[in-house]
């Protein structure tokens, strides 16, 4: 299951979708909206995405994971839109014959997702300001 959605992620459904009698291990990763980042307080995140490309890249990542590990089933769901503290922004579920394969494949999928899938988050800070998160493109902070 590869999906972008504006609705809350049903991670139970996602997890069930990768379960199999061939699997000895199922790993579920959830990314959730964190309150504190380097001393600053987040009140919400807004996620924007380029859906056609994001879905294509997620399918490529699933294929890459399948070429590296004996993945039985894999599922990735990413939420878009306005998310509050604690909300689930992304869920990755993987089943494999053995646990180390499932952990490694799941970690690969979420790590690569953060590098190549065209989705962006905008911070809504507690002081009322907003800020797109674009790693490597931030203004240089003064060293104090």
């Amino acid at each position: 299951m590869i999906q972008l959605t504006h609705n809350p992620i049903d991670f139970t459904l996602l997890t069930e979708s990768v379960r199999s009698n061939q699997a000895g291990a199922v790993v579920l990763f959830l990314g959730t909206v964190r309150e504190m980042t380097e001393g600053r307080q987040t009140v919400a995140l807004d996620y924007d995405g380029f859906p056609e490309m994001a879905e294509a890249k997620l399918r490529e990542l699933e294929a890459e994971a399948r070429s590296r590990w004996p993945v039985i089933e894999a599922g990735i769901v990413h939420r878009l839109g306005h998310l509050e503290l604690g909300d689930i922004s992304v869920a990755v579920a993987v089943s494999c014959p053995h646990r180390h394969q499932a952990f490694d494949a799941g970690r690969y999928l979420i790590d690569r997702l953060k590098e190549v899938v065209p989705i962006w988050k905008k911070e809504n800070w507690s002081d009322g300001s907003t800020e797109w998160v674009h790693p490597g493109a931030e203004p240089v902070k003064s060293q104090i």
Partner: peptide, 10 residues
């Protein structure tokens, strides 16, 4: 074409 800054999903 699409043009965008570095991604930050997850």
């Amino acid at each position: 074409l699409a043009v965008f800054p570095p991604v930050s999903g997850g």
